[in-house]
Design a protein around this nucleic acid. Structure first.
Length: 548
RNA sequence: GGUCCCAUCGUCUAGUGGCCUAGGACACCACCCUCUCAAGGUGGAGACACGGGUUCGAACCCCGUUGGGACUGCCA
């Protein structure tokens, strides 16, 4: 370990008293009961970053941490790669929360310099995704490609300053040499060759031979990288294209970014960027800009605990939108990945903003659990008013194909959709779906011409059960006479059941299957009322004929 | 291989030396409610990776081991 000051134990300076709720004891399992954090003044303590971050939640400092002495300017800088990754969504959310929490600016920059992954619709996809999530940006979107002049100016400055050298090694040559020596990576072959710059030379950054770069990461604490383990890296291709690590940092300098909040996968490139940033600060032609604070967020991983893979894992934010997840639910769930609010996990934007603290962000990777996302989505769905819910269903049920977001038709002829019937069905289905995509199947019996029969259900309660057919036969008679309201239908079927010796739970099954095709669904009598007498009787007769 | 990061129920987490008999949420199981299915209610099972050390006391601090991960491009 590096040099330490053993007496600098921050805990001694930070008395903390944790209390449980308002009572001395807390009953086990009490919902929503939380510990409260009380912080005592931190007298005379230096409110600067600690060399190592203690595990667990930090208390709120009495004095603002040094990194918050300026109004934060954060940025989200995705590159257009085809669709919006949930990991990007999480990163952008944390940036946005941080900016909103501290009254800073959230800057959007699109890193479009790799021409292979740069298409108009992909760039638009980023804007659409952020808009859908409700992560509004204060500046931009700026395109990295618009800043090419600055990138090249930075390269010239570094070259003038002697930080760079030309290299004409090919990939094959480098690989051959590292195979021979058994040491992977670039070996510094051209370091002292003093090659002139030309069309076949790349420019490499000369790493210091010794020493180390230390980063005070806002979530990970102090991280030290020995220079000897980092090879000289390319800053500009022989083609003249300035590479990501430099371009990214030059843009951050021009935008006066104060906090770089990004995925942990970028942690290893941070010392390179810090070195280049400081080198630029020493260049006469370059402005001096304060180094930003860094915060590296834990990765999102799959069940195999590997970084979410574009090929194998369901990572496209758009697909969650199309499956009927609400943006509010997605935001809430994403916020829970690597962080947690103090109270209930179900927390709206205002609470997320109010409670968000980078210092509380976890350091270990988080599994993207669709089951939990689904649960949270269902919670938000249930919390909606009926009208809002009905409105949110439009892309899945609307007769107008232009309204269909998943580009899939509902399972009925669009012209048979009845908005009034649907809105009356909403209270019946709202607690029964976890995503909006489940809605069409749940109301299909109201709008379809044909009943889609679940054959197992038909067999169980009709074909194989003589009593089921009796129930149908009697129901056809009784339902022809009763008031066609849920209450009357209910009473009629109870009475009918008593007549044939069946409790309601058994008597309702044949009717349900005959009318809706399945054994599960919304409450039966309300459904029949919505369907109307004529269609109900038709279906009962058809089902009876089908199994006779 | 090298550098770096990480380690509490299956999952997401609370926890910052005594309030821990380790809390909550998802998932799971049981029961209640009930016209089915949900929703809701009640209860249950389920974790500090391991080994040393420091300390009166360690999930928490230190060291090591093991395990997992990221990076290691003239990609971003």
């Amino acid at each position: 370990m590096g040099p330490k000051e053993p007496h600098e134990d921050p805990r001694e300076l930070r008395p903390v008293h944790l209390e449980r709720g308002v009572h001395g004891h807390r009953p086990r399992g009490l919902r929503g009961a939380r510990r409260r954090l009380h912080v005592h003044p931190q007298r005379g303590a230096r409110a600067r970053l600690r060399r190592a971050r203690p595990r667990g939640r930090r208390q709120l400092p009495q004095r603002r941490p040094e990194h918050l002495r300026v109004t934060p300017r954060v940025r989200f800088a995705p590159s257009p790669t085809g669709y919006f990754h949930v990991g990007s969504a999480r990163t952008s959310l944390f940036n946005w929360l941080f900016a909103r929490r501290h009254g800073g600016a959230f800057v959007l920059r699109i890193e479009d310099t790799d021409t292979e992954r740069n298409r108009d619709e992909w760039r638009q996809g980023i804007l659409d995704a952020l808009t859908w999530l409700g992560l509004n940006w204060d500046e931009g979107p700026t395109l990295q490609s618009a800043n090419l002049g600055d990138h090249h100016a930075a390269v010239e400055a570094l070259w003038e300053g002697g930080y760079l050298y030309a290299c004409d090694c090919t990939r094959e040559q480098i690989d051959a040499r590292s195979a021979a020596t058994g040491r992977p990576g670039y070996d510094g072959h051209c370091r002292t060759r003093e090659l002139p710059r030309g069309p076949s030379t790349a420019l490499r950054f000369r790493m210091p031979d010794e020493g180390a770069t230390t980063i005070e990461d806002l979530v990970r604490g102090t991280v030290t990288f020995p220079h000897e383990a980092i090879g000289d890296f390319v800053v500009m291709r022989s083609s003249g294209v300035v590479l990501y690590a430099l371009a990214n940092l030059v843009d951050d300098r021009s935008a006066r970014i104060t906090h770089v909040i990004r995925g942990e996968d970028l942690l290893p490139t941070t010392p390179r960027q810090v070195l280049m940033w400081e080198a630029l600060n020493h260049c006469a032609s370059q402005e001096r800009v304060d180094l930003p604070a860094y915060a590296h967020l834990p990765m999102l991983v799959n069940e195999q605990r590997k970084k979410l893979s574009k090929r194998k894992d369901p990572v496209a934010l758009e697909s969650y939108r199309d499956q009927g997840y609400l943006p509010e639910a997605m935001v809430n769930y994403l916020a829970l990945l690597g962080w947690s609010p103090r109270g209930d996990e179900i927390a709206d934007r205002a609470r997320l903003i109010d409670e968000f603290d980078l210092a509380e962000v976890s350091r270990s990777p988080a599994f993207f659990d669709v089951k939990k996302l689904t649960h949270i989505n269902a919670e938000y769905l249930r919390a909606m008013t009926s009208d809002a819910f009905a409105h949110a269903c439009r892309p899945w049920v609307d007769p107008d194909p232009a309204a269909w977001r998943p580009r899939a038709a509902p399972p009925w002829a669009p012209e048979h959709f009845d908005a009034d019937v649907f809105s009356r069905a909403v209270p019946l289905i709202q607690t029964r779906v976890t995503t909006l995509a489940e809605v069409p199947a749940m109301v299909a019996f109201l709008f379809g011409d044909e009943v889609a029969f679940d054959e197992d259900a038909v067999a169980a309660v009709l074909a194989d059960d003589p009593l089921g057919r009796v129930v149908l036969a009697v129901a056809i008679e009784r339902f022809a006479e009763v008031d066609f309201t849920a209450a009357s239908l209910h009473d009629a079927l109870v009475e009918l059941g008593e007549g044939v010796g069946l409790p309601l739970r058994r008597a309702q099954a044949p009717v349900r299957v005959a009318v809706t095709g399945t054994r599960v669904g919304p409450p039966l009598f309300e459904s029949l009322e919505l369907l109307g007498r004529q269609r109900t009787l038709d279906r009962l007769r058809a089902a009876l004929a089908r199994v006779s």
